[in-house]
Simulated assay, not measured.
Amino acid sequence: MKFSQPAADVLVPDRRPLAAALARTTHLCLAAHQDDIEIMAYHGIATCHGRKDRGFTGVVVTDGAGSPRTGRFANYTDEQMKTVRRDEQRRAARLGKYAAVIQLAHPSQVVKDAKDDRVRTELAAILRAAAAEVVYLHNPADKHDTHVAVFLRCLEALRSLPKSRRPKQVLGCEVWRNLDWLVDADKVLLDDSPRPALAAKLIGAFQSQIAGGKRYDRAIAGRRLANATFHTSHATDAAQAVTWAMDLTPLIHDDQLSVEQFTLAHLDRLRADITARLRHFKI
Score class of each variant (00 low, 15 high):
Lys52Cys: 11
Arg51Cys: 14
Ala8Lys: 01
Ala211Tyr: 04
Thr25Met: 06
Ala197Leu: 11
Cys29Trp: 00
His253Val: 12
Trp244Asn: 09
Leu127Pro: 03
Ala265Cys: 08
Arg269Ile: 12
Leu171Gly: 10
Gly64Pro: 03
Arg128His: 12
Thr26Lys: 00
Gln103Cys: 08
Trp244Phe: 15
Gln103Ser: 10
Arg72Leu: 15
Leu198Gln: 02
Ala7Asn: 11
Tyr136Ile: 15
Asp116Ile: 08
Asp268Asn: 11
Phe3Met: 01
Thr62Pro: 05
Ser108Cys: 10
Pro194Gly: 03
Pro140Cys: 13
Ala31Arg: 02
Lys282Thr: 14
Val119Gly: 04
Thr146Gly: 05
His144Asn: 15
Gly66Ala: 11
Thr25Trp: 00
His253Thr: 13
Arg223Tyr: 07
Asp217Thr: 10
Leu251Pro: 03
Gly213Pro: 06
Thr70Asn: 08
Arg86Ala: 08
His106Leu: 10
Arg54Tyr: 03
Ala114Thr: 13
Ala124Trp: 01
Asp87Arg: 05
Leu127Ile: 09
Glu38Leu: 08
Ile102Cys: 04
Gly55Arg: 04
Ala228Thr: 10
Ile102Asp: 01
Glu88Val: 09
Trp181Gly: 13
Gly222Thr: 09
Arg153Asp: 06
Gln209Val: 07
Ala99Tyr: 00
His231Arg: 11
Val259His: 03
Tyr98Trp: 03
Val59Ala: 10
His49Met: 07
Asp35Ala: 09
His43Phe: 11
Lys112Trp: 00
Val170Ser: 08
Asp63Ala: 07
His144Leu: 15
Ala199Asn: 08
Ile283Asp: 13
His27Asp: 15
Leu95Gly: 02
Thr70Pro: 02
Ala200Met: 02
Ala149Gly: 05
Pro196Phe: 01
Tyr42Ala: 12
Asp116Met: 05
Arg51Val: 11
Lys214Glu: 14
Tyr136Leu: 14
Trp176Val: 12
Met246Ile: 14
His147Gln: 11
Pro68Val: 10
Ile39Asn: 01
Tyr42Gln: 10
Asp36Ser: 07
Ser67His: 02
Asp63Glu: 14
Val242Lys: 00
Leu202Trp: 00
Ile220His: 02
Leu190Trp: 03
Thr77Pro: 03
Lys282Arg: 13
Ala65His: 04
Val101Tyr: 00
Asp184Cys: 07
Asp192Ile: 03
Ile274Asp: 02
Ser233Ile: 11
Val101Asp: 01
